[in-house]
C-alpha cells in the first residue's frame, strides 16, 4: 500500500493536513529544518515545490519563495537530496513534489531520481489531464503516484480522465486564480461529489487555505484533506514557529483521538 493510502487509512475519516514548502527556500539547511518542523507540528502529508523561474500558477508568496531558492543557487539535485533526508527522518509521512513541466522535461530520469529520493507523488502544475498521459506513464514506471488538478469548472469527461490517470489524491483548487492568501476559497461540495462519482482519488483542497475555518469548511464540503502553502511560507518568512501554525490548522481537521 502506498504511503498516501496508508495515511488516509490511518486517519480513519479525519481530514489529512498537508503542508507545503518550497525546497531550498531560503537555503538548504533552513529548508531541511522547516520540513522537520512541519511533521513535528502534526502535518499528515508534506508537499514540496522544486523551484522554477516562471511559475504561472503561483501567487506572490510562492513566487518569492522560488526566487529565494534559485538566488541561493539551489539545484534540482539539491531538492532530491532534501527529499531523501526527509524520507530518512520520517519513513511513513507521504511527501509529494509540486513543480512545472519544464523542470521535469529538462532532466532525463527526473521521475526515477524523485522515486529514488523517496518522493511519493508528483503534480506538474502546467500539465492538465489533456497532456498528462506520457508523464503519468513515466511516473508509474518509476513508482511515483501521479496527482492531477480538478476545479469547479472541470467538465465531467476530464474528471473521469483524472480518475483514470491519477492516484494518491486529487488536488482540488478551491477557487479560480493562483496560489496565495489574497482570497479565500469556495469549497464546492458539488466538485467533491462529482469527483467521487467519477471514482477519482481522495479529494484534497488547496488554494486559499490559511485559517482553521478554511480547513473546517473544506472538510465540511466532503474533502479528505487540505493543503496549505502560502500561509505557511508567510509564517516562516515572518520568523514564526511553523510547528504552531501547523498545529493550529491541523487541529481544525477533526477529532484528534481518531488517529490514536
Amino acid at each position: 500500500m502506498s504511503r498516501y493510502a496508508d495515511m488516509f487509512d490511518r486517519l480513519n475519516g479525519q481530514g489529512a493536513f498537508g503542508a507545503f514548502l518550497m525546497l531550498g527556500d531560503p537555503d538548504l539547511e533552513t529548508s531541511a529544518r522547516r520540513l522537520d518542523a512541519l511533521v513535528e507540528g502534526g502535518a499528515d502529508m508534506v508537499e514540496v515545490g522544486i523551484p522554477f523561474s516562471d511559475p504561472v500558477a503561483d501567487g506572490p508568496v510562492i513566487q518569492a519563495a522560488a526566487q529565494r531558492a534559485l538566488a541561493a543557487g539551489v539545484r534540482v539535485g539539491d531538492c532530491f537530496d532534501l527529499i531523501a533526508g526527509f524520507r530518512q527522518h520520517h519513513p511513513h509521512v507521504p511527501i509529494g513534489i509540486l513543480t512545472y513541466a519544464n523542470i521535469v522535461v529538462a532532466r532525463a530520469g527526473f521521475m526515477s531520481d524523485a522515486a529514488e529520493a523517496g518522493a511519493d507523488s508528483l503534480l506538474i502544475a502546467d500539465v492538465p489531464a489533456l497532456e498528462a498521459e506520457p508523464f503519468v506513464r513515466d511516473m508509474e514506471q518509476a513508482g511515483i503516484e501521479p496527482v492531477l488538478i480538478a476545479a469547479a469548472n472541470t467538465p465531467e469527461p476530464t474528471l473521469r480522465r483524472i480518475a483514470e490517470l491519477s492516484s494518491a489524491y486529487t488536488y482540488c483548487v478551491s477557487r479560480a486564480g493562483i496560489t496565495g492568501t489574497h482570497a479565500g476559497g469556495q469549497f464546492d461540495a458539488a466538485l467533491i461529489h462529482r469527483l467521487t462519482a467519477a471514482g477519482a482519488p481522495p479529494p484534497v483542497f488547496g488554494f486559499g487555505i490559511s485559517a482553521p475555518e478554511h480547513v473546517g469548511a473544506a472538510l465540511a464540503a466532503g474533502a479528505k484533506g487540505v493543503i496549505c502553502g502560502s500561509a505557511i511560507i508567510d509564517c516562516a518568512q515572518r520568523g514564526g514557529d511553523l510547528r504552531e501554525i501547523v498545529r493550529a490548522l491541523k487541529a481544525a481537521t477533526g477529532n484528534e483521538s481518531a488517529t490514536q
Binding site: P128, L130, V173
Partner: peptide, 22 residues
C-alpha cells in the same frame, strides 16, 4: 479540444487545468 494543436512534436496545451475550459 477538437484540433490536435500539435506541429510535429511541438505545441500542445500546457496550462493549469483551470484554464483548459477557457
Amino acid at each position: 479540444m477538437r484540433l490536435n494543436g500539435r506541429f510535429g512534436r511541438f505545441g500542445g496545451c500546457f496550462v493549469p487545468e483551470i484554464l483548459v475550459p477557457a
